[in-house]
Design a protein around this nucleic acid. Structure first.
Length: 352
DNA sequence: CTCCCTGTTTATTCTCGAAA
DNA sequence: TTTCGAGAATAAACAGGGAG
């Protein structure tokens, strides 16, 4: 149930801010003050609650909303005037604050459960344009532009392995000329998942490394100045002009509660010392990234008595570069992961 | 021929899940 | 945990027709 879990976590988080004794009371009362919340949603929630299928999510979401309502950084115990639920709609436009709830028209709350993904964008948007401007470049396959020869070799080997090179309905000789229908045929002929045949597998590994290396190079060369690297980090971390809150859970179910500060908040306390990106040898093309950030608050302590070195925080993550829908299928995409625990990321401020 | 409208296709992004 | 896959939503691009 894709939508159900999202619905539960988002709505229950909101309900928990309204001051009811517990979730079951809230579900009984069915407050209609939550914008966009209809009877059908309450019915689904009540059913899910009764079935016991999402106990963990109910509990965490309720606790998250409850704590936000009382947190010094949050509502500080003030009863909210209005709670707006964004609902299942995907907002038009670009780079909105990823908010699922809005409290009193001001407090934006994003509910994020079991995902370490920061972005899922086209590779050129990340590596060439640093997530800055949204401009689609059609007709340019990232794999062709970053690793043309390795891509071509892999493609040729896959044609041979699948026997499609001898098919009378010939596929194009050049990987760059693949059409959608060609991709479908090739994908269907390849093993569903797991390793490719020996020769192809070896070429796939070389291809992965070539793509990763070229991607990391292009990323680094698009970030020449300290200014650009800083802006890159802000966008990676989704720092926005206005602060917002993330209430959710890690992939292992541990609760997450933090405020995402603005670039201004970031600069007040932190200073980006370095931003690195480098290719990694993995099954699929992967680029790792790491930012070293100076925490001035801690640095001040160092002047007094703390140990030197503690004042540097490290933020780490990685980018998967992959076909969206399996080998040779769909345009390549770049999935950006955050590997550092969010509560230890400079610019994210855990709720206390 | 150009411009505008409209329906269709495709790329991109978001979401989540499952196998290894 | 890492690697890989897929459905759905949406916006951009495309294609074709018809009016001016």
């Amino acid at each position: 149930m894709v939508a159900l879990r999202t619905e539960i976590t988002e709505i229950v988080t909101g309900l928990a801010m309204l001051g009811f004794r517990d979730l079951d009371e809230a579900l009984r009362v069915r407050p209609m003050s939550v914008v966009n919340l209809e009877t059908e949603h309450y019915e689904r929630l009540t059913d899910a609650r009764a079935s016991g299928s999402h106990d963990r999510e109910f509990e965490t979401a309720w606790e998250n909303g409850h704590i936000f309502a009382r947190a010094d950084d949050g509502l500080r115990g003030r009863p909210p005037w209005s709670i707006e639920w964004k609902g299942p709609h995907k907002p038009p436009g670009y780079e909105q604050v990823p908010a699922d709830l809005r409290i009193d028209h001001v407090y934006l709350v994003s509910c994020k459960y079991g995902s370490s993904i920061l972005h899922n964008v086209s590779p050129s948007h990340l590596f060439d344009r640093a997530l800055a401007e949204k401009r689609v470049e059609r007709g340019s396959d990232w794999f062709v532009s970053t690793a043309p020869s390795a891509y071509q070799e892999l493609y040729t080997a896959c044609l041979v392995d699948t026997g499609l090179d001898r098919d009378y309905r010939a596929l194009p000789a050049l990987a760059a000329d693949l059409e959608t229908s060609d991709r479908k045929r090739l994908k269907a002929a390849l093993p569903k998942r797991g390793r490719l045949p020996d020769k192809s597998q070896q070429l796939y590994e070389q291809f992965s490394m070539a793509v990763a290396t070229a991607s990391a190079d292009r990323w680094r060369s698009s970030l020449r100045t300290a200014r650009e690297r800083e802006a890159m980090l802000w966008r990676l971390l989704r720092l926005q002009a206005a602060p917002y809150f993330v209430l959710g859970a890690t992939t292992s179910g541990e609760p997450l509660r933090y405020r995402v500060g603005t670039p201004w908040d970031f600069r007040n306390r932190f200073e980006l010392k370095s931003f690195d990106a480098w290719p990694e040898s993995a099954g699929q093309p992967m680029v790792r990234w790491r930012a070293a950030v100076l925490d001035r608050d801690l640095a001040r302590d160092v002047d007094n008595d703390a140990a030197v070195g503690d004042e540097l925080c490290v933020i780490e993550g990685h980018v998967e570069i992959r076909w969206t829908h399996g080998r040779f299928s769909g345009a390549p995409e770049a999935k950006v992961h955050l590997d550092t625990h969010p509560h230890r990321v400079p610019g994210y401020f855990p709720l206390t």
